[in-house]
Design a protein around this nucleic acid. Structure first.
Lengths: 126, 126
DNA sequence: AAATGATGTAATATTTTCTTACATGAATGA
DNA sequence: TCATTCATGTAAGAAAATATTACATCATTT
């Protein structure tokens, strides 16, 4: 369902709409952007334009704040999520080559025989 | 999927966004509203706010116009659609009563025996 | 040719949003 | 406790978006 993702990431909402949907003040929304928690686009006239994904994230941020997590904490949460996503993307980007397979088998044998491979595999192993 | 319908009918888009999504001028959009082909909501400051359904309809209108159908024609098309929808809603609103069933059976017998019922059933028959 | 239909354009008012700056109350840390 | 920091409110002034109204235009219909 690629089209759905596209729809949800389309920046079509002005800040006034987002304020109502997320029940946040313009000040709060702009502050969260300043803190790099969201990254709304800008239209030709420099107005912020938000996507449905942005709204979802704002609602998430609200929840985290309600749970007593502060900006720094939320920032870290998203940093880790993005870290994980980047890793998965990298994994997907390069499927296993025959050479990878040989190296994996080689490392496996080293492990079994009690030796330690110098570097963990930087490709998907499952 | 009631929530989806709700989402699609939420008036969240300003006219500037709609202009881009439907590739129509503000003049055209306002004119179609004047012709009662769309009915965007208004926010507290009197700005038109459109739903995704509104955008869909605008794209439909564009197609009809491209096919050479004029405002009057499009208006009629929507009038008939709304007519049909109203009828279906009415049908759904009143489920069959025991009495309806008896009348249907009665009419069926009349038909079989070559007679004609005075009035067609005004309730769903399937 | 005159009228109508669909759209463009201009003028002016109002609303929305932007940035920047300062204020504030709660929580934190020295 | 006193000074900071954090998260948010508020105000001011500028710029952008939108509203309404009126007139222009070009094609089609009558």
């Amino acid at each position: 369902m690629k089209e759905k993702e596209l729809r949800r990431s389309l920046a079509v909402l002005p800040i006034g709409t987002v304020m109502k949907l997320a029940n946040l003040s313009a000040r709060q929304i702009r502050y969260y952007e300043e803190q790099d928690l969201i990254h709304p686009e800008r239209n030709a006239g420099n107005r912020r334009m938000f996507s449905l994904n942005d709204v979802d994230r704002l609602l998430e941020i609200k929840d985290y704040l309600a749970d007593g997590i502060n900006m720094a904490g939320i920032k870290e949460i998203y940093a880790q999520q993005q870290q994980k996503a980047a890793q998965q993307a990298a994994d997907l980007a390069r499927p296993l080559t025959d050479n990878d397979v040989r190296r994996i088998l080689h490392d496996e044998f080293l492990n079994i025989s009690g030796f330690k491979a110098k570097n963990g595999p930087e490709f998907p192993t499952h």
